[in-house]
Design a binder for these strands. Structure first.
Lengths: 223, 223
DNA sequence: ATTCCGAAACGGTACGTTTCGTATTCGATG
DNA sequence: CATCGAATACGAAACGTACCGTTTCGGAAT
C-alpha cells in the first residue's frame, strides 16, 4: 500500500477515469527529481547509508514533501527502483520451454551482475527486516517474474518436457535461488555460465545413471 | 578481525602459550552477560531493532565496555551468534554420499526453520550491507559448512555417484541456496519435504527422458 | 478554498566518544 | 611476605553529532 504510494491525492482514480481534484496539483517534476536522487544515492552509498535528508537535499526538495508521499526511506527506495526497473528480463518463446527458461536465467543473471545488482541485493536484504519492503518486493518484483516463469514451467509440463507431478514452485526456487544467493553472498562470480550450469544440473540431474537407478528405488529390490 | 574480537588484550597469545598480562583481567562474567543479552534481544527484536544501548542496559554493563571489545552491533551480534551456534547440523556417513547430503539438507532445513532461523536470516541480510559481517558469516558460518559439504560431494564423485566433471561449488549452491532463499524471502514454508524435493530435483533432474535426450545433443542430429 | 511545496525549527533516539572514579591484577621494591 | 606503582578493566555520566519524524509558517498553483 504505502509502497505503491506517490499518487492518490491530488489526482484520484474513480472507476478508471481520472478525477480532477481541487487545489494545487502535485509537481511531477519534483517527483522525478526525488526518484532520480534516490536512485543515484542508492547506487553511490547503498541502501544502508541512504537517508531521507540526503535525498531531499540532492533533489532540492523539502523533507516534508518526501514524508507527505512516502512513509520512509524503504518505501521510497522500493518505489524509485521498481519505477525504473520495468520488464528488464523477459522470456522468449522458442519451441522449447526449457530453453526459454535457460535463456531467461542468463538474462536475469546479467541483470543481477550489472548496474542494478547492488540495489536489488540491498532491497532484498532490507526486505528481511522491513515487512513493507518485503511485501513490495514480493508483489512487484519477484511475483511478476515468478508468474511468468510459472507459465513457462507449466508449458514445459504440458509439452512433456518436465516429469509429470513436478512442483513448479520447487522448480522456480531451484533455478533462481542460486543466482540470487551468489548475488547476496558474493562468494562466487555472477557469470552467465553459472546460470547455465544450474539450469543443466536441475534439468538433467547431476547423478550418474548408476546412482540414479539406485536412488529411484531405495529398497534393495532387484527389479 | 574485529569479528573474532573479544579477546587478545588482557591475555595475549604468544606462540600458543597464554602470557599473563598486567592489569585487571577481563571479566568473563560480563562477557557472558553481554552475549546472553545480545542473543535475547536478537530473538526478541531482530537485528534491525537491536541497539548497543539496549544490550548494555540488559547486560548491566557499560556502553564503554561494549565499545572496548567490539566496533559495533554488527560485530557483536555475529560474535554472539557464532559463539553459541556450533556444529548444529553435522553430516552423517552412510554408504551413499548423496544420502548423507540429503539428510544434512533436512537437518539444515530444521535449523533454519527453528529458533535460529530469524537470527541467521538477519545476519545474512546484514552481511549484504556490512563487509565485516559478510566476512565473518562467510568464514565462520558458511565456509565451514561448505567445506564439509564439499568433502561429501567429492566423495560422491569418487564413488561414481555424481557425473565426472561436476563442479562441487555449483552443486553446493544448487542444493543449499533454495533453502536459504525461502528463509530470507518467506514466500513458502520451510518444510523438510522441500529440502528433499530440491535434492531429488538436482540429483535426478526434472526433465523427462525425451527432453533429456534432446537437450544432451542440442544439434538436430538423429544419432 | 484547497492543496501543494519549501524553509526552519523542534524533541527524540541512538550513535560513538570522553572523562572520571573505582576495582583488580602484575611486577618491583623493601 | 607486605606494599606500592603501573597497567588494564569496569561503570556512570555527560557530551556533540546525525538522522529521525513532526510541526509551523509563508507562499504558489489550481
Amino acid at each position: 500500500m504505502s509502497a505503491a504510494a506517490g499518487a492518490e491525492r491530488a489526482e484520484g482514480l474513480v472507476e478508471g477515469r481520472s478525477v480532477a481534484r481541487r487545489g494545487r496539483p502535485r509537481s511531477e517534476e519534483v517527483r522525478a527529481r526525488i526518484f532520480q536522487a534516490t536512485i543515484e544515492l542508492l547506487e553511490e552509498r547503498g541502501f544502508k547509508e541512504l537517508t531521507i535528508e540526503a535525498i531531499a537535499e540532492r533533489a532540492g526538495a523539502s523533507k516534508v514533501t518526501l514524508y507527505r508521499w512516502w512513509p520512509g526511506k524503504a518505501a521510497l527506495a522500493t518505489d524509485a527502483f521498481l519505477g525504473v526497473a520495468g520488464p528488464l528480463a523477459p522470456f522468449g518463446h522458442t519451441d522449447s520451454a526449457l530453453v526459454d527458461l535457460r535463456e531467461q536465467m542468463v538474462s536475469q543473471m546479467r541483470v543481477l551482475a550489472g548496474r542494478w545488482g547492488k540495489i536489488i541485493a540491498g532491497l532484498i536484504a532490507e526486505s528481511v527486516f522491513d515487512p513493507e519492503v518485503r511485501e513490495a518486493m514480493r508483489t512487484r518484483w519477484l511475483e511478476p517474474r515468478r508468474a511468468e516463469g510459472r507459465k513457462v514451467v507449466e508449458r514445459a509440463l504440458v509439452d512433456g518436457e518436465l516429469r509429470a507431478g513436478t512442483d513448479p514452485e520447487v522448480v522456480l526456487d531451484a533455478l533462481y535461488a542460486p543466482l540470487y544467493w551468489r548475488l547476496l553472498l558474493g562468494h562466487a562470480p555472477l557469470h552467465a555460465a553459472f546460470a547455465r550450469q544450474v539450469w543443466s544440473a536441475a534439468l538433467l540431474g547431476i547423478a550418474t545413471d548408476a546412482a540414479r537407478a539406485r536412488l529411484e528405488r531405495p529398497a534393495k529390490a532387484k527389479r
